[in-house]
Design a protein around this nucleic acid. Structure first.
Lengths: 338, 338
DNA sequence: GCTGGCACTCCCCTGCGGTGAGTGCCAGGT
DNA sequence: ACCTGGCACTCACCGCAGGGGAGTGCCAGC
């Protein structure tokens, strides 16, 4: 177990390193923080912290920098979440209000988050898995061509073209529309398949094929769109990453382009509360020198999707966490209102 | 006027520099291209080319690199568009087929273009300005709450919530829906305003307010969404930009984040044919060391939007132009089919 | 008008001390 | 038992000098 002072030393190292981006030595530490002990003592503490793997030195006779393990301890035990100031909160709210549709909400959120944290922001579109159906609309575009429009309670709209095996009358279409909506409106996506299972039986034999086709397209849409979309922004902030550019930044940009990777990343985060993944804790190779701070957000008490930021392991964790939490909260409110 | 051989020398310089990324000297030139003359002669030609501003040397006694003006001449007079090979064309088609909806088409296009050119790809969503209305749908979600869904012939769907000043019956809603569609379906966006102008008059006094509200929301949507959305990808390719990273890459990433900038960039391009903007020809400061190759694409003969790539001025222009043109063509086909 | 030759210019690489921040260790003090 | 001052040591970093080499401009000759 580390003594109180050694933890204090670790905290000081993290804070200084985050600020200066340079390895921090014992003398500088005692000067900038009044630890009440001499540099020599701090050196001993540092040696101990290094033995435990919390800090490391880039080269012999250089200052120390925190390791992933060191940041982990810092985040878990030494640092809180820095709350936003009142003006900041107002700014967040002002910025998010006035969004006209879901795309706009997500877009604004990304920009806001990137700006607040000065890092790369990632926002997942509200998930359909936990959403409910608000309305299903069927439009006849041609005798044997129907457009299916699915509207969710989060304001998301998906449409699919359906080529019917046989011409389908307006009356039958209206009938199907009515029956479909009475069954699935307000229900969860996951429940839809069994709710519509026996629908074709209610129709004339000649229309059953078409009804079945429409339904299977609907179910397909539900499945396909459960794979989430997301939006990223603030990639310009990657240039503040460090000194050895190409090598560091390249894999990160590549990882950010693969939505699958990001979705998995956000998906791993626990459902409630904030998750911080530091350096090598991230499964993806290219993100081993980044930290990911993510949190769920949602319209009700329940999280429907996640958002977060990706930044260098050397980041201001309390501040970042504060911003992420605050933004998630306000986005949730906005979604609940619409 | 430059002699034939001097143009040939310029072409050789551009080609070599694009390949090696290093200033190219007279000796190396004569070795790699059989110009039929000695290095000394080439040196004279180079001096002339430099006088005219087509090439420059980073330092005295270094090789030459093309200037923006040099690239311009190269693109205009010396280089053609390198057509895609048959396997490449097949690959493009295979990759773009199988897209399920508009987002998917655009997403695939961006990835494809980025991969083919190894540069940053930008694809504008098909424009609403020139699109026509396929269908307008109105859904009653609550007595005084209507959802407006607009479907375009390019497969784009936009929705808006409308809070009505007074409750609005199902019958009136159906009436409005029918009248609205009979007037605007198949018509161009630009024509919609005057087509619906006198619609409220056909309704009972008590409903007129609501009808007007719905209509104004529709018009608003048309205007708002005329401001285009776009998708970018392949930003990881920026890391292949050059040696002096942070300074070069930073403003580019910033410019790419501002959709307005990109839209203006694409918008400037001439409607038909390919446009190449080289270095400082780009209005935006941050893009002064990049070139933008863009072209319109569309479902019919008419361009509905643009796409292109952003890369270093030192790029393989013929290859890039070939890829951009080919992709635009196939995307147009895909859109025409759906 | 092309060519070979020649002197010149600089960039780039390498090796070399000097400087300074930082470390580890140890002996002594509280 | 723990903190402290002192001391020798280690490197990264900086500036500097000296080749090497690629490239240039110019000039005289063909």
């Amino acid at each position: 177990m580390l003594s109180e002072r050694r933890l204090e030393v670790l905290r000081a190292i993290v804070q200084d390193y985050v600020g200066t981006e340079e390895p921090v030595g014992s003398k500088a530490l005692t000067e900038r923080h009044n630890l009440g002990v001499s540099p020599a003592t701090v050196r001993n503490d540092m040696a101990a912290l290094e033995d435990e793997g919390y800090i490391a030195q880039p080269h012999t006779s250089a200052g120390r920098i925190p390791t992933d393990k060191g940041y982990r301890l810092f985040v878990d035990k030494l640092a809180g979440v820095k709350p936003m100031t009142a003006p900041e909160r107002r700014a967040i709210q002002n910025f998010l209000d006035g969004a006209v549709d879901l795309d706009d909400v997500v877009g604004r959120t990304v920009r806001l988050l990137a700006q607040l944290t000065r890092q790369v922001a990632v926002v997942q579109y509200p998930s359909l898995t936990r959403s409910t159906v608000r309305h299903v609309e069927l439009l006849s575009l041609a005798p044997a061509r129907v457009m299916l429009v699915l509207i969710t309670d989060t304001g998301r709209v998906e449409q699919r073209m359906v080529d019917c095996p046989a011409p389908f009358g307006e009356a039958a279409l209206a009938d199907l529309r009515a029956r479909l909506n009475s069954r699935v409106a307000g229900r969860r996506f996951a429940d839809v398949p069994q709710l519509v299972q026996d629908l074709p039986e209610a129709f004339e034999a000649e229309d059953r094929g078409t009804v079945a086709t429409v339904l299977s397209t609907l179910l397909e849409t539900l499945v396909e769109e459960t794979e989430e979309r997301l939006m990223i922004g603030g990639t310009a902030n990657l240039t503040r990453f460090g000194h050895d550019f190409p090598l560091t930044i390249r894999p990160v940009l590549e990882a950010l382009e693969e939505q699958v990777v990001l979705l998995k990343l956000l998906g791993e985060a626990t459902d409630s509360g904030m998750t911080v993944r530091i350096g090598h804790e991230n499964a993806h190779e290219g993100l081993s020198s980044t930290s990911v701070v993510s949190v769920g957000y949602g319209s009700g008490g329940e999280a429907v999707a996640k958002l977060g930021v990706v930044g260098p392991t050397r980041m201001d964790y309390p501040g970042t966490m504060g911003a992420v939490r605050a933004v998630a909260r306000y986005v949730g409110q906005i979604l609940a209102e619409s």
